[in-house]
Structure formats: C-alpha cells, structure tokens
Simulated scan of single mutants.
Amino acid sequence: MRLIAFDYFRAIAILSIVAGHCISYKSITSFDERVIANLIQGGSPLFVFISGFFFHHIFYRQFAYSQFMLKKVKNVLLPYLFLSSLALIYYLSSGVSLPDANELGITSLSHWQDYLTMFGLYLWTGRTSFAYWYIPFIMLIFLMSPLFISYIRQGVKTRITIFIIALVVAMIVHRPAGNLSPWHAVLYFLPMYLLGILVSMHRDFVQSYMANKTIVLAAGVIFLAILQVLIYPGFGNLHKLHAFTFDGLDILILQKIVLCFFFLSLLQKLSERYPDIPALMLLADASFAIYFIHPWVLIALVGYKWLPYVEEMSGLVQFVVTFPLTIIISLAVAYLIKRGAGHYSRCLTGW
C-alpha cells in the first residue's frame, strides 16, 4: 500500500535540502535571520529518516542483501558516478580549481597515479559538489543493512536503548568538517535512520499519538531553533574535524527529530484530505534528480552570477529569489533528461 503522507514527506524533504543550500550563500547575522536559517538548514536528516522508514516498510520482510544493494547501485550510485565524473572532467578541462583540494591533500597532478588518487578521493568524499557527500554516506548505510536487520529483530527496550545511545553520540560528534568524512557522517546521522525504522515498526501508534499535536510540535521546533541561536554564535549545521572532541551538544538534530514528527502529524492530515496533490507527487518522484542537479543550478545562479543583481541582494531576499528558481530549473532539467534518455535516465539522474 502506497503511503501518500510519505510521498508528500519526500517532497518536503527535497525542498528542505535545496532551501538549506540556497540560504547558505549569504551572510546571516541578525537574531531572527539566524532562527529562520536554523529552521531551514539541515534538511538531510529528513531524507535519512525517510530512508530508514522505507528500509523497514518495503525491504525488511523479504530482504535479500544482494538484490537490495544491486538496486541501490543502479538507482543511487550510478547517477552519482556519472555526474561526479562529469564534474571532475569539467574542473580539469576548464581550469576551474578543484573544490576542497587542499583539505583533501591534493597538491599536484603530475602523474596518472595522482589523477587516480584524486578521482578516488572525490568519489569517497563526494566533494565534486557541496551536496554530493550524501551519497558515499548513504551507501555505507546501505552496506550496513544486515546490522539494521538485526536491530529490527531486537526487543523494544533494546531498540530504544540503541537509538538513545546513537542520538547521544550524534549530539557529541556533530557533522564532519566540510562533510569530508563519510564514516563521521554515519555516526551523526545513524539515529535518524534508526528513528525511521522505529516509526515504521510502530506506525499506527505514532500516527495516533501525533494526530492532534501538530501545533505543539511546531512550537517545539521553533523553540529548539531559538535555543540554538541563544547558545551558539553561528547558525545551521554544526561541523567539526575530530568526532570525539567535545565542543558542545548538537541541538539541530533534536530539532530535526521534532520536525519529522511535526511533518508526520501535518502530512497525515493533508494526505487524508487531499490524497493527490500533483505538485507534491511530482517533487516526490523527482526528488533524487532534483538533489543531483540543484547544486549545479545554484552554482550557476549565484556562484557564476547568472542571476542579475544577485550580489546586491540581502541574505533572505536572495534566498526568496534563488530557492524557487533553483527548484523550477532543476525540475525542468530533470524532466528534459528523463524525456530524452527514457528508461536510462534513472542511471543518469536517479529519476
């Protein structure tokens, strides 16, 4: 049975991810801007939560590791390899500096071994684009699937205990600096994946419990966004290089957990009343393609200044302009590729 509320959730998740990237281009300084930025940034946990939910809902009952991984390679890894390779070819042929080359330890490209090492480093970290770090991380999660099968088979108390331990660890380790370490990302995002599994296992209970708490959950999300501003000078995601050095507790992941439950409460009601909203269904179906394409659209609009007067715009004004443009252009490009490549488009863009 198709879960319309989760189709809508996938649409909201990809909008959140693109929005977080759009708002990060300009400096955000005032209190209210930082609160808004905290609410907008950090959309990736929503995607991880959904992935964990569907791991149990779809794959668990007839789980076959080889078939599962083959599907993920085809639908996730192949588009990543294709688009990352195109990006590297562009960087090398155009003379544009390789992103994060110093951080990755790439100092020279004199021999074929240097190019091979460079290629491997960019595929491992996903740093051909500011968004592609997600693919090496999520492929590690998929490779760990037998552990999640074992997790599902544990008793309720054991599952809850493991989730709480994973959450505490995530709050300590923060996200990796520059998103350059996939294993560090696994430590941070693991509780979101486990939470998705737990919600799938206890979906009826969660839905009934959250049914009339939409406003309370919304207030909780806003409270945590404000609390983060009061504690930390910056905004959005917390990053650090060394996972187990203590530098405060990550509040954003708590906010995103509450945000997941807020959307579950809101979207369940919405899907019951409006079970076929075309725009949300289209965004859900094209979500992975939008994810793969939107970094390049945003770089063109803002980084290469294809958008007129982009430098004169304030942070939030630039966001209001670039966010819908990035979504529309990314969706249009994805649609054209899908029409042109037919069934091969799934290997190119994930749609």
Results as ranks from 00 to 15, higher is better:
R61E: 15
V35G: 06
I164N: 02
A219N: 07
L180I: 10
L252Q: 10
V229A: 03
F163V: 02
V206Q: 02
A170H: 06
N38C: 08
F246R: 06
L81P: 04
I28T: 13
V96H: 12
I164T: 08
L254F: 04
V321P: 00
L187H: 04
F31N: 03
I149W: 08
W296V: 01
M139T: 04
Y304K: 14
V199I: 15
L140Y: 11
L187C: 10
K240T: 00
A211K: 15
Q255V: 00
K256A: 03
P324R: 06
H111R: 15
F142S: 09
Q207D: 11
D276L: 11
L140N: 03
L109R: 05
M210C: 14
V310N: 11
V76T: 13
F148E: 04
V258H: 01
A37Y: 03
V229G: 01
V216R: 11
V333Q: 02
L143F: 14
S181T: 10
V156H: 13
A279Y: 12
Q67R: 15
L121G: 00
F244S: 11
M192T: 11
D114N: 13
G315W: 08
T107D: 13
F82T: 11
S108R: 14
F9I: 06
E312V: 02
I293V: 15
L267C: 09
L267Y: 11
E312L: 10
I152H: 03
R203T: 01
Q207T: 01
D204A: 13
E103P: 03
C22S: 15
L147E: 08
G196R: 07
F55Y: 08
Y344Q: 14
I290T: 06
N179L: 10
I293Y: 10
R203K: 15
G248Y: 12
Q207F: 08
I138A: 02
T117F: 12
P182V: 06
N212P: 01
L336R: 07
L194R: 07
Q268L: 09
I293G: 03
W351E: 08
A300W: 14
A87G: 03
A219D: 00
Q228W: 02
F119I: 09
D100E: 11
R61S: 13
D114C: 07
P99G: 08
I162T: 13
F246P: 03
S108G: 02
K305E: 15
M139V: 11
L298Q: 13
I226T: 12
Y344H: 13
V310C: 04
Y151F: 15
N237P: 00
G350C: 06
K305C: 05
R10I: 06
L264F: 15
P308S: 13
G155T: 10
Q228L: 05
Y132F: 15
L238R: 13
A13L: 08
Q113T: 06
G20A: 04
I277E: 05
